[in-house]
Simulated assay, not measured.
Amino acid sequence: MKFTVRLVWLLALLGLSACEFDRHEVHEARQNLSYTLEMHHIHMLINHSLQMAAQGADMNLQGVELGPALLAKSTELLKRAMSGLEMAQLHKLGNAGKPLMEMTHALADKSTLLIEEMKKLSPESKDKDAIRMLNHAIEAAAAGSSMIMLGQQGMAGDIDAVMVNHGQSMLGEASGLLRDVSGAAEYKELVNQVVHMLIGIPDMPVIFDETEADAKR
Rank of each mutant, 00 (worst) to 15 (best):
Q89G: 01
L100P: 00
A185Q: 07
V164I: 15
A88Y: 06
H166T: 08
Q153A: 05
Q193Y: 07
H48W: 08
L107Y: 03
A185G: 00
S17H: 03
I201C: 01
A108L: 02
R30S: 10
L45T: 05
E189R: 12
G154D: 02
L171N: 11
A143Q: 15
L37Q: 11
V162M: 10
L90W: 02
L45F: 06
N95W: 12
T112A: 06
G154N: 13
A96I: 07
T112H: 04
S83T: 13
R217V: 04
H166K: 07
E139W: 10
M118N: 06
F3T: 13
M1F: 09
L61P: 09
T112N: 04
V164M: 15
M44F: 01
L33W: 15
R6A: 09
Q168D: 06
A174S: 15
A57Y: 05
F21C: 05
L100Y: 01
K98V: 04
A140N: 14
S83W: 02
L171P: 06
A57Q: 07
A137M: 04
H105A: 04
L90F: 06
E189S: 14
D180L: 11
P99W: 00
K73L: 08
A185L: 08
S74V: 03
G84K: 03
A213L: 02
N47C: 11
S146R: 06
S111V: 04
A130V: 03
H41L: 14
V194F: 05
M52F: 13
L77H: 04
E20W: 12
S74H: 04
L85N: 08
D22I: 14
L171R: 14
G151M: 02
L100M: 14
L171A: 13
M82F: 05
L33M: 13
L66C: 03
T36S: 12
L190C: 00
H40C: 02
P123M: 04
I148R: 15
